[in-house]
Amino acid sequence: SEEEIREAFRVFDKDGNGYISAADLRHVMTNLGEKLTDEEVDEMIREADIDGDGQVNYEDFVQMMTA
């Protein structure tokens, strides 16, 4: 549901600035027990970053979650 997606976005957007940065993503993945290299984190950001601004905004996140 849209509310679940919004809630998930809030979990990833640690600093609440409306964007998921590589640092935000790394933090959440580490908490989930996933040890990722910087390259892996950057690749995840690139794949999710639809508009190419280097971070994942809510619209990018929705597209990723509903793809």
Rank of each mutant, 00 (worst) to 15 (best):
V56K: 00
L25I: 12
G52T: 10
E34H: 15
N57L: 12
G18L: 02
A23D: 13
E2P: 13
A8F: 07
G52C: 09
M29R: 01
G16D: 05
I5H: 02
T66N: 07
G54L: 04
S1M: 09
M29K: 01
S21N: 08
E7N: 11
E43Y: 15
A23L: 09
M64H: 10
D49H: 14
E7G: 08
N57Q: 11
M44N: 01
H27C: 08
D24A: 11
L25R: 00
T37L: 05
E40R: 12
S1Q: 07
I45T: 04
A8Y: 09
Y19W: 11
G16K: 07
D38T: 10
I5M: 10
I5Y: 09
F9P: 00
D15L: 11
G33R: 13
H27Q: 13
T30K: 15
S21A: 09
D49F: 09
E2V: 14
D24F: 05
T66M: 14
L36I: 08
A8W: 10
E3H: 12
I5V: 07
E2T: 08
E7Q: 12
I50R: 13
R46Y: 06
V56W: 03
D53V: 08
V28H: 01
N31F: 15
N31Y: 15
R10S: 05
Y58I: 14
V11W: 06
D13V: 02
A67L: 06
A8T: 03
V28F: 03
A8L: 10
E43P: 02
D38S: 11
D24W: 05
K35M: 12
F9G: 00
E59D: 05
M44W: 12
R6Q: 02
D42Q: 10
N17L: 08
N17I: 06
D13L: 02
V41N: 02
L25P: 00
G16C: 07
E7P: 01
T30D: 08
A48W: 13
E40D: 07
D15K: 09
I20S: 00
D60W: 15
Y19V: 04
L36S: 03
M64F: 09
E7F: 06
D15Y: 09
E4C: 14
R6M: 06
A22P: 10
G33W: 15
Q55D: 06
H27K: 13
V11C: 08
A67S: 13
L36C: 07
V11N: 07
E39G: 07
Q55I: 09
A67G: 08
Y19A: 03
T37R: 06
S1H: 11
N31R: 14
D13T: 01
R10L: 04
H27T: 13
D53Y: 11
V56T: 02
D51H: 13
E40I: 13
F61V: 14
D60A: 15
L32D: 01
E7D: 09
E59M: 09
Q55A: 06
G18D: 01
T30H: 13
V62D: 00
I50V: 12
I20P: 00
D24N: 08
R26E: 02
D15F: 09
I45W: 06
F61T: 01
Y58F: 08
F9S: 01
I50N: 07
E34V: 15
L32Y: 12
R10D: 02
N17H: 06
Y19P: 00
V11H: 09
D49M: 13
S21K: 06
H27S: 09
L32P: 00
I5S: 01
Q63N: 09
V28C: 02
T30N: 11
R26T: 04
A67K: 15
V62M: 10
A48H: 11
M64T: 05
V41L: 14
F9Y: 01
D15A: 08
E2Q: 11
G52I: 10
F9W: 05
M29V: 06
D13N: 01
D13H: 01
I45Y: 05
E7C: 10
E47R: 15
A48P: 01
S1L: 11
A22H: 07
R46W: 05
N31T: 12
E39P: 05
L32W: 09
D15T: 10
K14T: 10
E47K: 15
Q55V: 06
M29L: 15
D53L: 11
R10T: 03
V11E: 05
M44H: 04
G16E: 04
H27P: 02
N57E: 06
E40W: 11
F9K: 00
G18W: 02
I50D: 04
E47T: 14
D53P: 03
A48C: 14
D13Q: 01
G18V: 01
E3Q: 12
G33V: 09
E47I: 15
K14F: 13
G54E: 05
H27E: 09
T30P: 01
N57D: 04
G33I: 11
M29I: 12
E43V: 12
F9N: 00
R10W: 03
A67R: 14
G54S: 05
T66R: 12
V11T: 08
I50P: 10
R46T: 05
E34P: 14
F12N: 01
K14G: 04
E2F: 14
I20T: 01
V41S: 02
K14H: 13
K35N: 11
E43L: 14
V11I: 10
L32N: 02
L36W: 15
I5G: 00
E34Y: 15
I20F: 01
G16H: 07
E34A: 15
E47P: 03
E40G: 04
A67P: 05
N57A: 12
N17W: 06
D42T: 10
T30W: 11
K14M: 09
K35P: 11
M65C: 04
T66P: 02
G54P: 03
E47N: 15
A22K: 13
V41C: 03
R46K: 13
E2A: 14
R6L: 10
K35H: 13
D38M: 12
A48R: 11
T37S: 10
A67N: 12
D60H: 15
G18F: 02
M29C: 03
E4G: 08
V11Q: 11
M64D: 02
D60N: 14
T37G: 05
V11S: 08
E39H: 11
F9L: 06
D49T: 13
A22S: 07
D42R: 07
E40F: 09
Y58L: 07
D60L: 15
L25K: 00
E2G: 07
D60C: 15
V56R: 01
G52Y: 10
F12W: 06
D24L: 08
S1V: 08
E7T: 08
A23C: 07
I45D: 00
Q55Y: 14
A22R: 13
A48L: 14
T66S: 08
V56H: 02
E4S: 09
D13P: 00
I50H: 11
M65R: 03
S1Y: 12
E4M: 13
A23M: 11
D51V: 08
G16Q: 07
Y19I: 04
T37D: 04
Q63W: 09
E7S: 10
D42W: 13
G18M: 02
E34R: 15
I5D: 00
E34N: 14
G52H: 10
I5W: 14
E7K: 13
E43N: 14
E4R: 13
D60T: 15
V28D: 00
V41T: 04
I5F: 08
